[in-house]
Write a protein that binds this DNA or RNA. Sequence first.
DNA 1: TGGCCGCTGAAATCATAATTTCAGCGGCCA
DNA 2: TGGCCGCTGAAATTATGATTTCAGCGGCCA
Lengths: 291, 291
Amino acid sequence: MSGSHPQTKERPRSLEARIQEHLPELPSSERKLAELILDFPGELSAYNATELAKLAGVSKAAASRLFKRLGFRNFEQARRLVRDIKQWGSPIYLHERQQDSSPLPSEKQAFLDDHVTALTRTFDQLSAADIEAALQRIVDARRIWLVGYRNSYFMAAYARWQFIQFRPRVDLLPHPGETLGEHVTEFAPDDLLIAVGMRRRVPELDRVMQAAQERDMPVLYITDSLAGDKPFATWTLRCDISSSFLFHSYVGPMGLIHYLSVQAVRLTGKAGRLRLEDIEIAHEKMRDFDD
Amino acid sequence: MSGSHPQTKERPRSLEARIQEHLPELPSSERKLAELILDFPGELSAYNATELAKLAGVSKAAASRLFKRLGFRNFEQARRLVRDIKQWGSPIYLHERQQDSSPLPSEKQAFLDDHVTALTRTFDQLSAADIEAALQRIVDARRIWLVGYRNSYFMAAYARWQFIQFRPRVDLLPHPGETLGEHVTEFAPDDLLIAVGMRRRVPELDRVMQAAQERDMPVLYITDSLAGDKPFATWTLRCDISSSFLFHSYVGPMGLIHYLSVQAVRLTGKAGRLRLEDIEIAHEKMRDFDD
DNA sequence: TGGCCGCTGAAATCATAATTTCAGCGGCCA
DNA sequence: TGGCCGCTGAAATTATGATTTCAGCGGCCA
């Protein structure tokens, strides 16, 4: 965007590309280090030159010489390149990708890896006991209230959509044009509040949860792995939302809600399946769908 | 390394956990930095204390004090902790753990596999040309209109939330209490309509897309892999939503929207990043957040 | 064999990052 | 009001990491 980016002038080649290019002419100690870098498993930029040298079993001097020879002013410059390409990308770098004969093994792969890690951690962390209890309540509750603000709103919306597939009376709060207070007075002990609160949370969420607790209504709190405990939550389910890119990954919560939905239908048994069929028939009659 | 073998068995308290614990008692400048760290989506250990301080808008002294207060000997120790914990959570480690101690009950594994398959297929199928063009338009459009019904509504809501992080004028249609018609008259050639339409689509979606086309406004159509072509779509991006369970998996579309968001910010360049910072500052001023 | 050459790592030097000090500020309370 | 106290960032200090120097080594070839 800004007309004269300093980056624009520099050569946009990635560290790996530069290594590939120089590999044949590298002396042995530097090559040892270069090869270590090429199949380095973690985040290269999290390590300093001394550590890399030690890992490759060469001297610090060799490391320093390698980066010079690759055309960097110093090690620090290389480290930044690696880090910033991952975080911001560079328009030039991305553009180059299309023509490049041997492109980076598709950056898409890195996004995919991120999401898979988040999902795996989410499923791994789930508290079986809380899941069990919450599921039973999702099925038995007279009424379900869903609430989520900001980045959590769409997850509450997703949960609502799923839940109304197999049970009635699932409300997403607040309804447009209404304040929360109007609904809170309806909270009842045999209802369930599901509060979705990923960072960053707004104080309002606490107030809703507290209101539920004061009315003896259980609360299922769905949040991120790093969140502290909430005294108002009856059950807490945590999701990993970490990503190495600019925005968090919400595939974890999606997986969790999908899981809850499928298991809830199973628990519901025949009634839930019948409801699914009813909805289908109703739509059919109204010719709601395109295809 | 030094002679003693590192203790890989004990899981050390994470940096984030320590921050959560101390958050209430932190003075404002240190808290600002702590907040930044909690929200940090990238690889924290790739940054040094000076940079983090600058990003948070506090002095280096504050950074140094924060890590001391959190119980670390110094910043370096914290940085290593973050880096090494990441290794703990790496897919390889997670995989081993599944076989070893507490295996994921095989059914959770099956859910996980489903989502991973859906994500992989989604990323594999993406049309590079359409992505490229759509991205440019997401950045350049004067105004973006988002629409999605039924099961697609929450994805449109997610996309809106992401996009307003880096650009203004992103509308989710229809606004509560209004009909679509009122907005359609505002459609303009240099705007963009993003229509999310997973199975099963309602006829209304077609009408909106058609209206856009009639007004020479380009349309990005996000749909499922099995959908037929839409004559009203300028670009089409398809996601795999298949699942072996009762409900579809929508992690594919989530991954796609996440990808579009990250790449769009990159394209936007400095302007987008500045906007991210502005939003953060505005929130700070309004004391919008809980923690 | 002897001389050249480039490579190597240890150690010296240099550069930069992290920590500590310190003076000033602002809230709080007697 | 004045004195205390904890917070703050600029600047001084210290620690750590990176680079450069340098002596020694080993291959190569006349």
